[in-house]
Design a protein around this nucleic acid. Structure first.
Lengths: 117, 117
DNA sequence: TGTCGATATTGACATTCGTCGATATTGCCG
DNA sequence: CGGCAATATCGACGAATGTCAATATCGACA
């Protein structure tokens, strides 16, 4: 049962009408971006892009040790989440991390930490 | 092939010995924490905890619309990632978000965005 | 135009993940 | 002690995910 006026001096939680929740859309949006970053391979890609500026997809296969379709797949996921931006020049496609997108994720996490929204 | 001295004034990337990579352990650690946050249900839990301070597990089933084992499972994941801390008082278990852990994730993301490490 | 290189897409497969019901464990209280 | 409430664990199942080989698409260039 809901602990409310128990011996512990804790505030009752989840009172019927407490609307202290973010809209589902916001939670879904942020969690989708976090999910895109929550894979070791993709986070490694982001780190390489952040360190090198603009990198073409073909130069990621070797350091990652992954096949070309797999690299393409991860870049697609990161682009869909807005974390990286692609820039197709001629035959090859350059990718760079969106510093703004990363900063936004960090900022929203920070706000979450303080219970604000 | 690696575009280096091509017509575009882009720096060559992935030069043989370029060690601009974080240790695997760091990438694994951060991606694990991001993965824990990268689920809508778990991010919703974090948001509820952040907004309410300390919440007992039994009060999460209803707002989430999930079974007790599922809630317990997600709380376990978040605790394993260091995102939430449990505090078992008597019969029930209270949970609160670790502001420090969230701040660390946000900070590491920010450093990543600037290519530093 | 035809070939070649880079990238994207498709299909398949093994693994992981989220979820639940059932059950075990633990601590209160009568 | 015995029952009850909260939580954790187990087993199972469908869905999503990461990966690759094969193939398609697209652009450059001879």
């Amino acid at each position: 049962m809901t602990p409310g006026e128990s011996l512990l001096a804790e505030p009752a939680v989840c009172v019927p009408g407490a609307p202290l929740v973010l809209p589902d859309a916001d939670v879904a949006s942020l969690s989708a971006r976090l999910k895109a970053l929550g894979d070791p391979t993709r986070l490694r890609i982001v780190q390489i892009l952040a360190a090198n500026g603009s990198v073409c997809a073909c130069d990621l296969e070797e350091p990652l040790g992954l096949s070309q379709p797999t690299v393409s797949h991860h870049l697609r996921q990161l682009a869909a989440a807005g974390i990286v931006e692609r820039d197709k020049r001629g035959s090859w496609a350059f990718h760079r991390v969106s510093a703004a997108a990363l900063a936004t994720v960090a900022a929203e996490l920070g706000q979450l930490a303080h219970g604000r929204h």
